[in-house]
Design a protein around this nucleic acid. Sequence first.
DNA 1: TCATTAATTCAACTAAGTTGAGTTAATACG
DNA 2: CGTATTAACTCAACTTAGTTGAATTAATGA
Lengths: 369, 369
Amino acid sequence: MLAKVRAAGASGRAQIARASGLSTQAVSNIIGDLVADGWLCERGRRCEGRGQPAMQYAIAPFAGAALGIEVRPATVLVSLVGLDGTTLYTHRQPIPRADPETLANFVPSLLDAAMEAGKDQGADRLLGAGVVMPGPFGETGLAGAPSDLPGWAHSDPAEYFERWLSLPVRIENDANAATMNERILGSAQGIDTFAYLYFGTGLGLGIVMGGTLQRGAFGNAGEIGHIGVPYKGRIAPLESAVSRMALETAMRKASLRATRIEELEALFEARDSVLLAWLDEAAPALTHALETLESLIDPQTIVLGGALPKALVEALVARVHLTERSVANRPERSHPRLMVGACGRMTASHGAAALVINAALTPQMASMA
Amino acid sequence: MLAKVRAAGASGRAQIARASGLSTQAVSNIIGDLVADGWLCERGRRCEGRGQPAMQYAIAPFAGAALGIEVRPATVLVSLVGLDGTTLYTHRQPIPRADPETLANFVPSLLDAAMEAGKDQGADRLLGAGVVMPGPFGETGLAGAPSDLPGWAHSDPAEYFERWLSLPVRIENDANAATMNERILGSAQGIDTFAYLYFGTGLGLGIVMGGTLQRGAFGNAGEIGHIGVPYKGRIAPLESAVSRMALETAMRKASLRATRIEELEALFEARDSVLLAWLDEAAPALTHALETLESLIDPQTIVLGGALPKALVEALVARVHLTERSVANRPERSHPRLMVGACGRMTASHGAAALVINAALTPQMASMA
DNA sequence: TCATTAATTCAACTAAGTTGAGTTAATACG
DNA sequence: CGTATTAACTCAACTTAGTTGAATTAATGA
């Protein structure tokens, strides 16, 4: 019911009833309960045509909240997001090391700070926490990759965080979390089959099909960084051609350094030749990957975003020319084949919170285990 | 409830209750009704340990059936499959042309024949029909591809078939139908995240994630034949390297012909050098595609099958060497990374019926439109 | 002013589940 | 061999979440 209201925006009881297939009466009862419990609030009446004007309902501004935590090698990012999608609080905490012992000291106080900040805005009804950690998870052929955090190899992060926070916890990789951010709060709202290409440390991909984030059999779907694409006359992993790492490598060769987003932004505005050359080289490799993706999952759109300046992503998209001879090229398409999504540092931690909100508002099938 | 019984095999009421989270009582009532209506049947008692032995229930042999129809340019294949997965009837009907006018004449009589053949075996309770037609559907950049059937471009095939059959109809492409065959009746039973590579006219892919067949935004997910892979030193569509068409092209160059499966089988058994050379060339291209697939969707396994001799598919699989440096390479894996599935002519039409059965036995979320 | 329309509510009913006590048929043990 | 124990299953009363159909309310339009 809450999901319906979120999806449709403010709506009257009868309207919801028609949309959900339930009787007016049932909807009326449920809404009554939800208002009484503070989940929904009245939003005035809409007068339109004859008949009694419909009382509109919307998700109450301070109905509840979810916590998002992103763990990086030297930083923890915290977001508190309201049920209605508003950002209530964000915080950036430097840490010496991202191992379980260090985090055990920091996490509880970060929770306290977030609770305090969002005290009267729904934080008293915290639905859960989403935690972003670099994937891939579990023991794979990629173990020992540079993105791995120390001290987590043989333990279940969710257990630790549940103990520290006393909240239900969901662990996700950065790409998947950012994808949910895009789906619930960003440019992919209402799209239920799409892919999100996320520029993080490496290159990640979140896949949403049929409204559900697809995590794969072992939670590692979307490792697009490792697929082989033509690059500089050879087949190379996409990540080595298109990613922040690849860009940094290219710049280092020219004795340039630009680690922070702002520095990259400045370089791009200055039309730096090394940066532009990288764009020109990266685009064909990216094109190949995106065409593969379109063929395999037939998405409504592919969104690009992450820890790169928006202008840079836009420039990259402008250089990608997708073939017209594809199943993806169809006239009734309602979204462009490529879109630029939310860029910025907090995308993933926001997304982690969004993930929890989505889980809370999405009707789930009974376990069926 | 029926889905549970199918998934778990014969089981007692209490056992089902524990698995489904419902009370024993509720399960007992439901099972009572299902037995009364002829969906389930008793299967004797299992004596094991103390306590009253549990009465076992299984899906009744003649509880119902589904029709599968595969439309090809010059042939229509018909399968009648029982709810419990048994094949009740198959038929192969040559037709002059696969346009709507011609089919309007053939389809009703094909239905009658199938109903007659399965008269006392559940055909009186026909759940629906699955129709396999070559994709991609709708207007895409690939319009005019050789696989297209004549006369269907601007109409909805489902409407036609529903009129001809007076049954609920589902349209699928061959790869997706074959995938359901594998999932419900074949080697992918109980696997809920996998991909099925189908050798048909071209090359198709069915993707099952989280137990659901993923059809993409426009029903054309899995167009793997069109992704670019390295082949003979260039980037070429996978289909031009690995498919029956590719094989036929290679053989034609050597002035050989082998259109029928049996001919291919004979050639392979004779260790024909052209065939073996093709295998050696096709395998690296296929390897690239499969590694891409593993990275993107992280499946439990990838199954290969379709209209090629099983031995040939096995030989192809033997020549594919997947890198160990992959997210897909993990110790707790319970299935091999590649498997050989059902091969043969009726795979797709069977699958179409399987699709209907699956839809009937899978609990669906209320529409939520 | 009054009929029409649509949103909402009231009240009785129904379907599908729950709980808790009781029954049945097997094994385990003295 | 008889009896306690165990587990599957049933009976009966109760609860919940929905349904249906009639009544109420507040707007528009003739």
